[in-house]
């Protein structure tokens, strides 16, 4: 190596060393770099390594700067704003969709609540109707019972009156019979008594 690079001058020696250094650090493929450096001597007459041919540097730097500026302009003017807007738009859509889903869920819950409420209302209504019907029937029943009671009472009073009448009639008959019997008894005994006195005595006796 060393003698070879000497014949090629300082630049070439420099070149070979640099190739070796770069290759060592990068890949550890020292053998390959040896080959590369050797071959470079053979291939290019003036330069050991194209990377260190300083005559091409201005060219590379110029085109690199042009390229970077062009890429930068393309990215900042078109590509990046567009991708950013697409990404944020997608984020917005996702957020909206989630919000809409949340809303629909709430609506569903509301509907369920309303349904339950309606069910409870209907149940309460049914209870009320049943209670009302019961009350109506009870009232009717009470009225009917009252009427029947009154009728029964009237009938009983009537019967009582009839019985009283009969009893009074019987009492009168007893009185008349008693007076007659008393008169007859007195007459049979040979007593003399006027009717008025006998009647009063019998009446007094009967009261006592």
């Amino acid at each position: 190596m060393a003698t070879e690079t000497d014949t090629h001058g300082e630049t070439a020696g420099h070149a070979a060393d640099a190739v070796q250094g770069a290759a060592d650090t990068a890949h550890g493929a020292a053998d390959a770099a040896h080959g590369a450096a050797d071959a470079a001597h053979g291939a290019a007459e003036s330069v050991g390594m194209p990377q260190l041919d300083f005559s091409t540097f201005p060219n590379q730097i110029f085109w690199l700067v042009v390229t970077l500026v062009v890429i930068y302009l393309i990215l900042t003017k078109v590509a990046l704003p567009r991708i950013a807007s697409v990404l944020s738009e997608r984020q917005g859509t996702i957020t909206n969709d989630i919000a809409a889903a949340e809303e629909l869920k709430l609506k569903a819950l509301e509907a369920e609540d309303a349904y339950n409420q309606a069910l409870a209302d209907a149940r309460a209504e049914a209870h009320k109707i049943v209670a009302e019907a019961k009350a109506d029937i009870q009232a009717d029943l009470d009225v009917a019972i009252g009427k029947a009671d009154a009728e029964i009472a009237a009938k009983a009073a009537e019967s009582e009156a009839a019985i009283g009448e009969i009893r009074a009639g019987a009492l009168d008959s007893v009185r008349t019979v008693a007076k007659d019997v008393a008169k007859d008894v007195i007459a049979a005994m040979g007593g003399k008594a006027d009717a008025k006195t006998v009647n009063a005595a019998v009446t007094a006796q009967m009261k006592g």
Binding site: A32, A36, A39, A44, M49, P50, D53, T56
Partner: peptide, 8 residues
């Protein structure tokens, strides 16, 4: 010629 590919 492994370095030929790098010639500008």
């Amino acid at each position: 010629h492994p370095m030929d590919q790098f010639v500008v």
